[in-house]
Design a protein around this nucleic acid. Structure first.
Length: 303
DNA sequence: AAATTAGCCAACCGCCTGCAG
DNA sequence: GCTGCAGGCGGTTGGCTAATT
């Protein structure tokens, strides 16, 4: 019989956070700084456990969090880092400072893992017969997963974004204006316009600054990730111009070819680590499979 | 139009680690 | 060294929404 979880205490609220709760939490952290989470519900009167407060802050209210669709660069980073590190979401998130581990974990589980699995399924089934090639769902596979910013999201989701942005302003300005419910409501009223602006901003955003990336892996390794990112980006962009899954798969094949070429031209590069080499070898092997498949299916109906 | 299914993601749960006493 | 607490992490769940039937 272990000790009861902190959130099992009587009177502790569960479920979605309300704007009012967010404002209270943000106000408190703005004043006292993050940390000492135990004292947060005590001092603020929030009916939340300390863990819940910490999670809410780190995953949503913390300034600098980027929400919305993942860029091809980020997708490439995640795929590579997941291959290198496994499901170490916190470690992976450290290379994507604007993303939370929870966000990355969700994105992996709902998008990337599925896409890779389907890709593998197609590879496997393609060797049996042409007709066995499944009709792939357009989502997830062709790399044009619906940008979250454009997906319908709750009004409140955007209000937390606003709170976060507001806090960013606080951080910059030591004069710290007080946040009020009225202000939050005003922010909420502007949420739709901000959503559009935010989505547009996301669509044009580029790589995080190199200096923002921590030093858990070497610069060389990071460079390789970016190289892969370029390949990945090209693949997604090409794939997104193709309306059919087959076209997308073709694009991905091209990208994997690029990976193979990158590998071949790697004499000038620093030596790969075991895992990186393994990943490249895997990718190259898949390229070879696909190329064989393309020849076998020269009727042209497959890709 | 209603019912059902699938997808997404915020939040929770439980385990682990580090640290202070 | 032991114990209790706080914080961190990864896995899982539940609710909401969109898509499909």
């Amino acid at each position: 019989m272990g000790r009861p979880p902190c959130c099992d205490k009587v009177g502790i609220k569960k479920g979605p956070w309300t704007p009012e709760e967010d404002i209270i939490l943000v106000s408190y952290i703005q004043e006292h700084g993050p940390g000492n989470w135990r004292s947060v519900p005590i001092n603020t009167g929030l009916l939340r456990c300390s863990k819940s407060c910490r999670l809410r802050w780190t995953n949503y209210l913390r300034p600098g969090i980027k929400r919305g669709n993942f860029t091809p660069h980020e997708e490439g980073m995640i795929i590579r880092l997941q291959g290198l590190l496994g499901n170490k979401w916190a470690a992976i998130a450290s290379y994507l400072p604007q993303r939370t581990d929870n966000d990355i974990k969700n994105y992996w589980n709902t998008h990337l893992k599925k896409s890779l699995k389907k890709f593998q399924t197609v590879l496997d089934s393609s060797f049996i017969s042409n007709s066995s090639i499944p009709q792939l769902h357009s989502k997830g596979w062709n790399g044009t997963s619906t940008p979250s910013s454009f997906r319908s999201c709750s009004t409140y989701a955007s209000s937390t974004e606003n709170i976060s942005k507001l806090l960013e302003g606080w951080m910059r300005d030591s004069s710290k204006p007080n946040i009020t419910l009225k202000k939050a409501q005003e922010e909420e009223q502007q949420s739709n316009e901000k959503k559009i602006a935010f989505a547009a901003e996301n669509s044009q955003r580029h790589h995080p600054k190199a200096e923002e990336v921590c030093d858990l892996i070497s610069n060389e390794e990071l460079e390789q990730l970016f190289t892969f990112e370029n390949v990945s980006k090209m693949a997604w962009e090409k794939a997104s111009t193709n309306s059919t899954p087959q076209g997308s798969l073709s694009s991905l094949t091209d990208s994997l070819n690029s990976v193979a070429e990158t590998k071949e031209n790697s004499e000038n590069r620093p030596p790969y680590s075991f895992h990186e080499k393994w990943i490249l070898d895997e990718a190259a092997a898949q390229v070879e499979d696909l190329m064989d498949l393309s020849l076998d299916c020269s009727s042209g109906s497959v890709f």
